[in-house]
Amino acid sequence: MTTAPLIDPFHRPITYLRVSVTDRCDFRCSYCMAEHMQFLPKKELLTLEELDRLCSAFVRLGLRKLRVTGGEPLVRRGILTFFQAMSRHLESGALEELTLTTNGSQLGRFAADLAALGVRRVNVSLDTLDAGKFHAITRWGHLAPVLEGIAAAKAAGLKVKINTVALKGFNEDELFRLVDWCGAEGHDLTFIEVMPMGEMGEEIRLDQYWPLTDLRARLAERFTLTDLSESSGGPARYVRLRESGQKIGFITPLTHNFCESCNRVRVTCTGELFMCLGQEDRADLRAALRGAPDDAALIAAIRAAIARKPKGHDFDYTRAHVTGQMSRHMSHTGG
C-alpha cells in the first residue's frame, strides 16, 4: 500500500487535519448553530475506533498536525481513549502535534489528562469577558466554568490560545479588554471574522460582520503593530504589539483570502471529508471505513478526494448580500 505524501492539484502538501468527533455541544452559540438543534443519531457518527483508523491512515500519508474539534469535543463520551490512541503517533514521531479546539466548559475536568497524553496547547473559543453577554451569545453557557477551565489548562502546562469571533455590535467595545486580559494571563489571542456557515439568515450574518481590517485599525490606535512572518500551521496571520509584546492573530477568510497556503482538510463526525471549508464538495470516508477491514479503500478514497481539492473558497460579504454561504453548520463540519 503506497504511503506517498498527499499533494493537492495546486502542489500544496496536506499535512493538517481537523477532525470533528461530535456534532453535539453544551452551548448554542448564535453564530454557530440553532438553539434547538437536531443532532445526528449515534449510528451515523464514526466510532472512536473508526476515528482512530481514519486519523492513523492520514498519519501514514504524511499528516503532521491533528486538531480535534466538534461540536464540543470534550462532551464525547470516552474521548480520552481517542486522545490516548493518537498519542502513540506522537511517541513514534510520526505526528508533530495533537491539539484541540474547545469552548472551555469541560477543561477543568480534562486539562491534566490531556497534558499527560501529549497535548501541549489548546484553542479556547471565548467571545466576551462579560458574564451576561457570554450567556446571551452562548444561550446555554456560563462564563465562570470556562474561565476556571482555562486556568486549569494553564496550571497543567498547556499553552492556551483564545479564539474570539469579531461580532459587530456585540464585542466591539471589549477589544482592548480582551487584549489586556490575554496579555495579563499569558495567552495568545486570535480574532476571527464570522463566516457564512449554517442557515442563520443573510440579514443576521451581515449584521454580525465586523471586518478585521477595522478591528486592526482600532488596535493600531493604541499599539504599534509589527507583522510577523511566522505561522502556526493554520490560516492566521500574526502581529506583535510592541508595547506589550503580545502576539495577536487575524483569521480573515473574507477580507483577506488565505487559501494560497492551505495545507488542511476537515473530516466531520460522520466521516465526510471536506477539502475546503467554503465549498460543498465532499467525500464519504465512512463507507470506505465500514466496507472493508483493511485500509486500502480508505486510503484510495482519501487520495481521490485530495485530487479534487479546490484552489479556494467563495465567501464574500462585500456586496449587499452574503455569497458563498454554506448551509451546513460549523458544528457539523468541525472547527
Score class of each variant (00 low, 15 high):
Gly71Glu: 07
Ala34Pro: 10
Asp281Gly: 14
Tyr31Ala: 09
Gly132Ser: 12
Arg242Ala: 15
Arg120Asn: 14
Gly93Glu: 13
Thr102Lys: 06
Lys133Glu: 08
Ala305Gln: 04
Met200Tyr: 13
Met37Asn: 05
Gly157Asp: 03
Lys65Val: 13
Ser20Ala: 09
Pro9Trp: 06
Leu126Arg: 05
Ala305Arg: 01
Val124Ile: 10
Ile7Tyr: 03
Leu219Lys: 01
Pro310Leu: 09
Arg53Asp: 06
Arg266Trp: 09
Arg237Met: 10
Thr69Lys: 02
Arg237Asn: 11
Glu202Thr: 08
Cys259Gln: 07
Arg76Met: 00
Val124Gln: 05
Leu277His: 02
Arg319Trp: 10
Gly233Ser: 02
Leu95Trp: 07
Glu91Pro: 03
Asp316Glu: 11
Tyr317Asp: 14
Phe39Cys: 12
Ala300Asn: 00
Ser327Gly: 15
Leu241Lys: 11
Met33Asp: 05
Thr318Leu: 14
Leu54Ala: 00
Gly233His: 10
Pro253Arg: 00
Pro211Glu: 07
Ala217His: 02
Thr22Asp: 03
Leu90Met: 13
Ala301Trp: 05
Glu72Val: 07
Val179Glu: 12
Arg67Val: 08
Pro293Gly: 13
Ile251Trp: 03
Arg282Met: 11
Glu203Thr: 06
Leu117Pro: 05
Gly141Phe: 01
His142Gly: 04
Glu272Trp: 12
Thr318Ser: 15
Asp281His: 15
Arg282Ala: 11
Val75Thr: 08
Phe191His: 01
Thr3Asp: 13
Ser231Lys: 06
Arg237Ala: 13
Glu272Ser: 14
His313Cys: 12
His89Tyr: 14
Met37Phe: 05
Asp207Ser: 15
Leu63Asn: 01
Val122Asp: 00
Ala305Asn: 08
Ser87Gln: 02
Val165Tyr: 05
Phe223Val: 14
Ile192Gln: 08
Ala283Ile: 04
Leu61His: 02
Val68His: 11
Leu90Asn: 02
